[in-house]
Simulated assay, not measured.
Amino acid sequence: MAQRAIPKEIEEKMQKAKDMKPEDMLFTYKGVLYPSLLCKPENFKAMERFEAIEDDILLVAYPKCGFNWMSHVLKKISDAAHGKRGETAQFTLLEFADPEKLQNLSKLPSQRIMGTHVQPKDIPASFFEKKTKVLVIFRNPKDTAVSYFHFYNKNPALPAFDSWDKFFSQYMSGEVMLGSYFDHAVAWEKHIDSDTVKIITYEDMIENLTEGIQQVARFFSLTLSDEQVQAIAQESTFEAMKNKSKETHGQMGNVIFRKGGVGDWKNHFSEEQSKELDTKFEQCLAGTKLGAKLKYEVHCK
């Protein structure tokens, strides 16, 4: 049986969202919007005190950049490397964990696998102090925007947008949940040469999933056989995960898994919007190592 990725309590909160007013679905903490059903200010205060250990695994991504996909891949890699079969503890999203859950997480044995959508400055300092390895996945900003738009409109815990144009405007200004894509990108660019941070891209993983799995395993010093790599790749294609999404993610499966491809932005962006984002990319990431990794000319032109 596939391991359940979305706890039932989150599904229960999704049900509560049906009775909420759109203006109550998000709250601001330190200038950034978060989902009020899943996050509380006390969660972030508890995060600040969280103690990482060196062999923890931390996955980070701006929303809709492949986070759920990579959390699945990481658990598969860890299980295979440690000779387990679906025994990895529940993947924990740090900002969704209340103080009690974070306390319980602190008591778990290694190797703990955790994730977050927050910027480096909001990640518990202990991850950097202990030199815990951090895997960051980025996706090209145009496809990220389109995926995020649909995620907003299919997710009962978020206020829907009545038009793509309105969403695009707020995406560009950073007035969406978790803030600006480009703020995240600029912040992680500063860590790109760190031995404990590895940045991969959604597009590279799509293009060569087998090689991506091998790179991630090596980064975390986990040994896999060729047969294990192939098995993980077969179980981790978008199609395979979407087919099992009801089993693994419950009602959130249809929210999380949509198309999973590259280039859908062309079906949504106007020429003016495309040029506006091109200009923003030039201002924020042109000439940077992360900018080069994103292969903007290939995926966004």
Rank of each mutant, 00 (worst) to 15 (best):
E129Q: 14
S147F: 10
Y171N: 01
T132S: 03
M172D: 04
F149K: 09
M177I: 12
E100A: 14
L93C: 15
T132A: 02
T88P: 12
L158P: 04
Q103P: 08
K101V: 14
M172T: 07
D165V: 03
F149D: 04
S147R: 11
K84S: 10
K121R: 14
A160L: 07
P120A: 11
A157H: 09
N104E: 12
S163N: 03
G179T: 00
S169P: 02
P124E: 05
L105E: 13
E129V: 14
P156W: 08
N140L: 02
F167C: 01
V136N: 00
M114W: 02
D98K: 11
V134Y: 00
M177D: 05
P124Q: 06
S147V: 04
S110V: 10
S110I: 10
M114D: 00
P99T: 06
S163D: 02
E87I: 11
A89Y: 12
S106W: 13
S106I: 12
K131S: 15
S173D: 08
A97K: 05
F168I: 05
V118K: 00
L135Q: 02
K133Y: 02
L108F: 11
S147H: 11
Q111E: 11
S106N: 15
L158Y: 10
L108T: 12
F91Q: 07
T116P: 07
S110A: 15
D98V: 09
P141C: 06
N155D: 13
V176P: 01
G115P: 05
S163W: 02
Q111G: 10
E175C: 08
A160N: 07
G174M: 01
P156R: 08
L102V: 04
